[in-house]
Design a protein around this nucleic acid. Structure first.
Length: 477
RNA sequence: CGGGGCGUAGCGCAGUCCGGUAGCGCACUCGCUUUGGGAGCGAGGGGUCGCCGGUUCAAGUCCGGCCGCCCCGACCA
């Protein structure tokens, strides 16, 4: 680490992004192209994301299970659109134990097919429905171009899979899970997202309808941060998932799937991070507050340390707190923890011991402005309330940023200028070719058709044909 | 797969044009002094110069081939 400062975001956003990840020790490159090692700091963040989601899934009566990594290749081929979508990016095992396999096995890119296979056995009656499962696992997609957290050959995620006896229930659940993602993104990750429907060309391979939450990154590009799919009876028909209804009719089940991946970590980095490094939302931060002891000599040290021990103990009951007792200078530690994105820094030195105070420094408010003296007596309450404020200010700032860079161009000429560097919210006809033309001409794609619509109708921003819905267009990761 | 860049200590690089026995900064170890915004001094440890082959008395350096990684594009959570 020869250069102390990060490459500023304004100078080279990609470089900044990679440097933050490496220096905050979230992840590192693995020996295999496109693969990454998630280091303890990054994995602890993922564990907190997992907990936040898992809690919500369980509240929605979803149960966790595990399905195997290897899937017979033929399974992937049973659903037409699914195979077309995923074939190009499959990793295939052809040799096992030194023998060429009778049937190649694919390393799962997603598990709809193997769930379909098992469900065909498990689901016989309407009484077996709904079936609600979630898998915390890894998947492999052989991407051509990779980026830490945003697109790697292997990534961690959760994939939820549900089966229902009616289309209405299945579609309602698809939306319900989208709402879970939205709630998580907004309230835990402090990322304002736009929930919406994917266009025909952007939807999941094999889905009837795909829904997404879309977020704006610090460089004003969009990131698809979670998806929820209504699969209709496509997979039920491909895998023969049939049940007898109440009135003794044999029917195909209606299925859904929904996923959120470690990509979310990339989103957190890019939405909140600044030129000092990471900025983690308190609710997800593995370390919410770090205490930095300050002393010049052993005499001072012996006064400061006992105070810190006591404060740490009090805080530890409700705050994820760490004391940095490394033999480094305070200045080094300040910068180091700012890089790692810890929301609240607490400085305790001889002056504080004397006055019965500590110094709070907010990660989200740089410099002197973010510093304040806090009495030791009420430190737990003060820390908790500071974390709450930081959490809500992060969301507020991200929302303001997104809104300031979202425009409603009235002409296509204006539209082209807007999507260079912003989100465009426009009437759109929904036509596949129209969408392809826009992409060709501007590199911007439909991010989603927001669930929240203004009502009425308008003229398509590109082709001028009648449009019933408003869509978000942007350049995307 | 197309375009660009790079492979020399854990990291970042110089040295390559013009061949002569491998160097700098950071990090690491030890000691002393330091410590409220990235400490200083001193002493150390660490390298088959991406790989294979060729030219040469001699190759990090020249020649040929290969491999890998990063960035930009097409594809994608």
């Amino acid at each position: 680490m020869s250069e102390l400062k990060l490459t500023p975001r304004s100078e080279d956003y990609s470089k900044w992004y990679n440097q933050v990840i490496m220096r905050a020790q979230l992840a590192d490159y693995a020996p295999v192209r496109g693969c990454m090692v998630i280091r303890p700091s990054g994995y602890a963040l993922w564990e907190n994301i997992q907990q936040a989601l898992d809690r919500r899934f369980k509240a929605a009566a979803v149960e966790n299970a595990y399905f195997p990594l290897l899937i017979p290749k033929s399974f992937l081929e049973k659903e037409k659109e699914h195979v077309e979508g995923f074939s190009p990016e499959l990793a295939v095992v052809t040799i096992g134990g030194g023998e060429v396999l009778d049937e190649p096995l694919v390393v799962r890119p997603t598990s709809e097919t193997i769930l379909g296979h098992m469900w065909a056995n498990w689901i016989k009656s309407y009484r077996d429905l709904p079936m609600r499962l979630n898998l915390w696992n890894n998947v492999v997609r052989w991407e051509l171009r990779t980026r830490l957290f945003l697109r790697t050959l292997e990534f961690l995620w959760q994939e939820g899979h549900c089966a229902y006896s009616s289309a209405a229930e299945a579609e309602a659940e698809t939306i319900q899970m989208l709402n879970v993602y939205t709630d998580f993104a907004v309230n835990d990750a402090a990322i304002p997202v736009i929930p919406g429907r994917k266009s025909e060309s952007e939807k999941f391979a094999g889905a009837v309808r795909s829904y997404t939450i879309e977020a704006m990154m610090g460089d004003k590009k969009a990131l698809q941060s979670g998806t929820s799919h209504f699969l209709g009876q496509n997979f039920a028909k491909a895998f023969d998932i049939k049940f007898l209804s109440k009135d003794n009719q044999l029917e195909h089940a209606w299925t859904t799937s929904w996923g959120l991946s470690t990509r979310m970590i990339g989103g957190i980095i890019m939405v909140h991070g600044d030129d000092q490094g990471l900025k983690l939302p308190p609710k997800l931060a593995p370390i919410q507050a770090v205490i930095i002891p300050i002393f010049k000599n052993d005499a001072e040290k012996s006064k400061v340390i006992p105070v810190i021990d006591q404060l740490r103990q009090q805080l530890a009951e409700t705050v994820r707190v760490k004391v940095d007792d490394r033999e480094e200078t305070p200045g080094f530690k300040f910068n180091d923890w700012e890089m790692r994105g810890v929301p609240l820094r607490i400085e305790v030195g001889p002056k504080d011991v004397e006055k019965g105070t500590v110094v709070f420094a907010r990660r989200d408010v740089p410099g002197r402005e973010g510093k304040s003296f806090v009495p030791q007596a009420g430190i737990v309450e003060a820390a908790r309330s500071a974390l709450v404020t930081i959490q809500s200010d992060l969301l507020k700032r991200a929302t303001e940023f997104r809104d300031a860079h979202t425009h409603e161009p009235k002409s296509y000429a204006e539209f082209k200028a807007v999507v260079e560097d912003s989100f465009a919210r426009v009437w759109w006809c929904g036509d596949r070719q129209c969408e392809a033309d826009i992409k060709e001409e501007t590199k911007a794609t439909t991010r989603c058709i927001p669930l929240e619509q203004p009502g009425g109708s308008g003229m398509c921003v590109h082709c001028g044909k009648p449009a019933q819905e408003v869509a978000i267009f942007a350049k995307a990761y």
